[in-house]
Nucleic acid binder design. Structure first.
Lengths: 194, 194
DNA sequence: GGCTTTCTACCAAACGGTAGGCTGAGCGCA
DNA sequence: TGCGCTCAGCCTACCGTTTGGTAGAAAGCC
């Protein structure tokens, strides 16, 4: 469907409140009233955009989190996957991170789940690594997860395709920094050895 | 001036586009027409809000960056200062980071300076540390700066006063993770010794 | 094949509502 | 009397949404 792509782009450029259905209709070459043949409301449109990219991104990191292997290796893979997915879906991701707050409480929770799902994946992996002595024990897992999520999510604000860095480069460098930031000496040694 | 505080709060709650001058006037107990005695336009109001908090935050980290001492210690201090300032000025900071894109290109650049000023402070410190062998040489300074900025700026999205973590706690933990993430063995050793 | 009906994908116009911006009159206080 | 400030109200523009209608392709039926 082309509508959702156009809407994503317009929401990205003007923000949800700043974008009008007129803008979207113009870009599709139709009248704004005609949009209601496809949608129920403007809000539904935003919901669809956000919901899709969130579901996709979550699937990416969950798949990588559940692979067999040490928790530190899996965490690294999750970070890389998350960053690369962000870079390759820059526009929808930006809309998700920027306009989620434009949705009413209820629909927001419908997307995020009762607990913050992204954060949960990172935190679980960090806790597992901590239990094996691979991540510093004095570290608050939730804080560590938020730190990693921060540096990776921030990517949507500065990455530009064709810019100085490739998605792969950014993914692996951010993962490297994140892991070094939280691992124990043993965790790092075992990672280098494996 | 109370107007700017109220405007900050309203922009925070509803977003710039979603907020109306009516909302602001209501909260001040006056009619929206009366606002024009104080302001020239709605956009000017946003500009003032953003400009103020940006200038203040930049002053905080610049002061800490210019203190005498090793670059790694100064970087740590900058991170701590930045995070604590963010936590203590959560609402204006959120407006700054969230609504900067609502300003026209020109006024945006008037605030950020020709080069990204925050990023510049971090990058310069990282480059200094790199020159002294305290930060890994294979690390791209700009990427490292963006990683640190990401995890610290992200704080505005999850910190809540009276929540599980204090600003001091968050500042020192994020700084610790950031430094460990980029430093060389020698950098870490020298930091522990000093 | 020819005829009719249904469905798809829009169009045209208008609705009630609200937006930012502006004005000139008038208030209380020094 | 003068001045800082607020008032009530208007203007034009645009918003999301609804309604009623229609060209043309597709499908069903004989």
């Amino acid at each position: 469907m082309e509508l959702i792509d156009v809407a994503t782009q317009v929401f990205y450029e003007k923000g949800y409140d700043g974008a009008s259905l007129q803008d979207i209709a113009d870009r599709l070459g139709m009248l704004k009233g005609s949009l209601y043949y496809y949608i129920q409301s403007k809000e539904d449109l935003l919901f669809d955009v956000i919901s899709a990219v969130h579901k996709e991104g979550l699937a990416v990191i969950r798949a990588r989190a559940e692979v067999p292997g040490g928790p530190l290796e899996r965490l690294e893979s999750v970070i890389v996957g998350h960053v690369e997915h962000t870079c390759r879906n820059l526009v929808p991701t930006a809309v998700f991170l920027h306009e989620l707050s434009s949705l009413p409480e209820e629909r927001r929770r419908e997307i995020l789940g009762s607990e913050h799902s992204y954060q949960g994946v990172f935190r679980d992996l960090i806790e597992s690594a901590q239990a094996e002595g691979l991540v510093r024990a004095d570290l608050e897992p939730r804080l560590a997860a938020l730190s990693v999520l921060g540096s990776t999510n921030w990517v949507y604000r500065w990455f530009r395709p064709g810019g100085a860095f490739t998605p792969e480069q950014i993914g692996s460098e951010l993962a490297e920094m994140s892991i070094r930031g939280i691992a124990t000496a043993e965790g790092l040694a075992r990672r280098a050895a494996g």
